[in-house]
Design a binder for these strands. Structure first.
Lengths: 225, 225
DNA sequence: GTCTATATCTTGATAGAC
DNA sequence: GTCTATCAAGATATAGAC
């Protein structure tokens, strides 16, 4: 994107004009990080603006309201997540005819692959965390509705497209929620100092631990405040 | 508590004086509900005050800061949760000598009982939800530290006092996090209108479903806004 | 122990120029 | 397409009376 000039001042220095669609995605990416770290209520539109390198009113101008921006962030996260899942399903199941009639070995393999793909999503810290904050904002009418719909869409994808039994879906989702919670808690930061944290993370993230710890260190150290 | 007089005006009408300790617990109980519904950043000290039937400055006066109030709410939730778990452990295991060397049937039974006890805690909606919001506020230095410590305390309780293997703890915690998420999402409200919601809740809450649905209807209908 | 009044800061949103 | 200036509302915290 817009080169070195931004590294000093967060504010768009020469007010460079870029296409609205591109700017939109820039803002959404920035908002995803900010909302993921602080939640809907805890984040400000100004923090998003700074992260995107533009002015606060422009953020509001482009998305109407903070609430609407958050909803678009959630929908973007859901879209990415489901795209990734569908990719794994397609990759794993090149010749299965009936997704409702699958053998146990297949769903076990697919479950492992989807789990790995989920963990890979951590590379962009904002996706899973802003989603999680969306789920926790069920109280807000508009956000709550979007969050419920999205969550149930994931449920149906796992059941109908991946061919999981309801109880397999439940287990998969449960692991995901623990995963998200450990990330939000920033437990990776305690990995070196607490044996319980270490043990829990070892058994939660297993082979993908390096990715989690590495992404964590890189991510949090960049934070503004 | 202070009887009928409060049903009209939320504000303590005649400024009735009650012992500080009792008032403290009143405020904590109210704050637990409010923070549980809206999270730390989303809740206001005034909402807590109204829920407790006193003035906003008095809430701040008694707890110093909103942040400190939230931390005390979290600690109260943790304390209740751990007390309940310890009660189940004691009840289940009257004669086991070495908690580190337990047979599978025992941990299965205990796990089921702890799970049931956890679901029972939903009767007070604030406990699990304010805890969950605490976990999601790992970004705040003070709150994050309290949340991490508390989470790890629960981990150690399950491992050392309940005698679970790390992987059993992981699974138990994962179910708990899914449980909390479904509550925060207010999925119980969608039970009648969405087959996926119904299926997921049926298999998550099983025999305790009545409790979840009942408590939900009763709880949310009482809400102020 | 508890309230009223209020200072002060933050923040989402609008107006309007370039 | 993007910014500066600014308003209005809301929220935490303090002061001080009763």
């Amino acid at each position: 994107m817009s080169s070195v000039s931004e590294s000093f001042s967060a504010q768009n220095p020469s007010a460079e004009r870029i296409p609205a669609a591109e700017r939109r995605e820039q803002i959404l990416a920035a908002a995803s990080q900010v909302f993921g770290a602080r939640g809907y209520a805890g984040a400000t539109t100004d923090q998003v603006a700074q992260a995107a390198g533009i002015s606060q009113p422009y953020v509001v101008r482009m998305f109407g309201t903070k609430e609407n921006l958050f909803i678009e962030v959630i929908e973007r996260s859901l879209s990415r997540l489901m795209t990734v899942f569908r990719g794994e399903i397609a990759k794993t199941d090149p010749q299965a005819a009936d997704p409702a009639d699958t053998d146990p070995a297949y769903t076990d393999l697919l479950s492992a692959r989807l789990g790995r793909a989920y963990i890979d999503l951590i590379e962009d810290r904002g996706i899973l965390l802003s989603l999680m904050h969306g789920f926790l904002t069920g109280h807000d009418p508009a956000i709550g509705a979007a969050a419920r719909t999205g969550f149930l869409d994931i449920y149906r994808l796992l059941r109908d497209e991946a061919g999981f039994e309801p109880d397999q879906v439940r287990e998969f989702l449960a692991d995901g929620m623990l995963f998200n919670t450990l990330l939000a808690l920033r437990l990776p930061d305690a990995y070196d100092n607490d044996e319980a944290a270490r043990e829990l993370m070892d058994c939660t993230f297993r082979t993908k631990l390096d990715l989690v710890l590495g992404a964590s260190a890189a991510h949090w150290s960049e934070e503004t405040a």
